[in-house]
Amino acid sequence: MGDFKFIKGNEAAAEAAIRAGCEGFFFYPVTPSSEIGEYMANHLHRTGGVFAQAESEIAAVNMMFGGAATGARVMTGTSGVGYSLMSECISYMAGAEVPAVIVDVMRAGPGLGSLEPTQGDYNQVTKASGHGGHIIPVYAPSNAQEIVNFVHESFGTAERFRTPVVVLYDGYTGQVMESVEFPEGRQEKKPNTWSLDDAPGRKGRVVRSGYAGGIGQHSFELYAKYDDMKEKLQRFEEYQTEDAEIILVGFGIVGRICKSVVDKARDEGLKVGLIRPIMISPFPAKAFAKYKGTKVKFLTIEMSYGQMCHDVALAVGENDNTHFFRDKCGSLPAMSEILNRLRQLKGENS
């Protein structure tokens, strides 16, 4: 029997990290993510991990960088506004190829915005986590169980690809309490040859992202890593897509709602399916390959002006088959509204 807990999404993220073997947690409070830090403050010492609250997100992420450079397994938790401040260092960690996990709990923006949920940070996290054009893996859990699974897994991914990894979800998913089962055991931690560890008598090492005069070669090495990620990390869920005429595309909490919409649509005889990206970076373009040249239509649902829809359009190839249903951020899209849009699309079809 697994170890079950009825727990808030954010706290599940922290507990999963502790069990996975997180050794250092550095953060700055920001709604709707602060419970992650509070939980760590209360529990991380249980496994000998260290906790620190910094004077800003800039300091928090650089503390994490300092810890990660020693080979320690580190994490932070923040929201979009904090992620903006952390982006400079995330770029440095990507360039220095240093593993770290960043849990980012989106809140409606831009600016101060509101605490209600959004998916408006999709582009920021998948495309622009700081300057430099680096690609970093991003998990998009849609419920507390997936938060647990992906935080647990993210440490392994970060260390395997030597990169920062983001676990991105919205305020609702972070605040809602759900029953989760925690996976057994820690994430195995393999020795490495790059970190400033305590191996006695070894030669001095340098952890740096500066490659003046050598950036060309370094960028080719990074490109090879990005290809490797694209090969191995594309991940998605397909739901009732076998005979679907229209396929919904939604990630995170919207993906979860879309699954219910599919069931309802099927009740009305509408042949609808769902593709739910699980890793939104690298984007799971593979999921759309088999629909090339078919008449299947895609309806992307996002709580933003439209960000992932462009990745979908790129993956599908022809633009006429992809449609977008925009919903204002700050509130979850109503199933009825999506169903109306589906009926419209169906009408256009026949």
Binding site: A54, A59, M63, G66, G67, A69, A96, G204, V206, V207
Partner: peptide, 25 residues
């Protein structure tokens, strides 16, 4: 030019990185 361990961090941030490193090790 150095023979011992070095970490290069963003402009202005060594203090934070040092705090984090010292906590972890």
């Amino acid at each position: 030019f150095m023979t011992y361990d070095i970490l290069s961090v963003p402009h202005g941030r060594p203090g934070a990185a040092a705090s984090g490193m010292k906590k972890c090790d």
